[in-house]
Amino acid sequence: MSNIDPQDASPSDSVDALAADIDACCRLHGEFTLRSGQVASEYFDKYLFESDPALLARVVDRMVDLLPPDTQLLGGLEMGGIPIVAVLSARTGLPALFVRKKAKEYGTCKLAEGPEVAGRRITIIEDVITTGGAVRDATRGLRERGATVGTVVCAIDRSPAGENPLADVDLEVRPVFTRAQLDAARAG
């Protein structure tokens, strides 16, 4: 857990200092089996910064200025985007949506819990993007329901430098940090 009080988080917080703190909190060393089945000696556990109120507040402070001014709803993706969107919604006053990986098959059968999405401009909120698969699926689902989705704001973009993994769905990616920034924080 960080030693910074969430009340002390501010937009003037150094990007480099925040990157270093996130890297120190989330980069684990040991033996880890990855989703691919490969074994790695290093693992980045994003949930460690999301569960730390001080780090989460500092990341959200950085996200506020990345939101398009015409945003009407913030769409947090299950599961990692949910804590971020809840804090971001409270900070900005914009309503939050909680976007499922797939629509419920019972009750309201909704893909996104919260306000109606049809005719609204939604900014997707995600924790980490590598290939963008979950964001791509959510964007298509929200658009099918009449929403306008043009931007995703994420805490960390781990896709290859200079590439937009969501260009195929015409989505702008606005990260707080890139993989290179976190790697530089580790090296520094």
Rank of each mutant, 00 (worst) to 15 (best):
L66K: 02
L67V: 08
G37V: 12
A54K: 00
V39M: 11
R27T: 03
Y43F: 15
L67D: 01
E50T: 15
V60N: 00
L48Q: 04
D65E: 08
D70F: 09
D45E: 09
C26S: 09
D23G: 04
A24W: 10
Y47Q: 13
D21E: 07
T71R: 12
R27S: 01
R27V: 02
Q72F: 09
P53N: 13
P68W: 11
D23V: 11
T33I: 04
R58I: 00
K46N: 12
R58L: 02
F32I: 06
V59I: 03
L48Y: 03
C25M: 13
D70Q: 14
E31Q: 12
T71L: 06
H29W: 14
C26N: 02
V39K: 07
G37S: 08
S51T: 13
L73P: 13
G30F: 06
Q72P: 06
L73G: 06
Y43G: 08
D52P: 01
L56C: 07
A20W: 04
L55Q: 01
P53T: 14
A20V: 06
L67Y: 10
R62Q: 14
A40K: 08
F44T: 00
L34V: 01
S41T: 03
V60W: 04
S51L: 15
L28R: 13
R58K: 05
F32L: 09
I22T: 08
V64S: 04
F49H: 13
V59R: 00
Y43R: 03
L34G: 00
C26F: 00
L55G: 00
S41I: 10
D65C: 02
T71V: 09
E31Y: 09
R27E: 13
L55I: 03
L73Y: 11
R27C: 10
S51R: 11
L28P: 14
E31S: 08
L67A: 12
G37M: 08
P68R: 10
G75D: 05
L66C: 07
L28Y: 15
D23P: 05
L48R: 00
C26Q: 03
V59S: 02
P69N: 15
C25E: 14
G37K: 05
D23E: 12
A54C: 04
H29M: 15
M63S: 08
V39H: 09
P69F: 14
P69Y: 15
V60H: 01
R62E: 10
Y47W: 08
Y47L: 10
F49N: 06
Y43D: 09
A40S: 11
A20P: 04
D61R: 07
Y43E: 14
T33L: 07
D23C: 11
V64C: 08
A54Q: 07
L34F: 01
V64N: 06
D45T: 11
M63D: 00
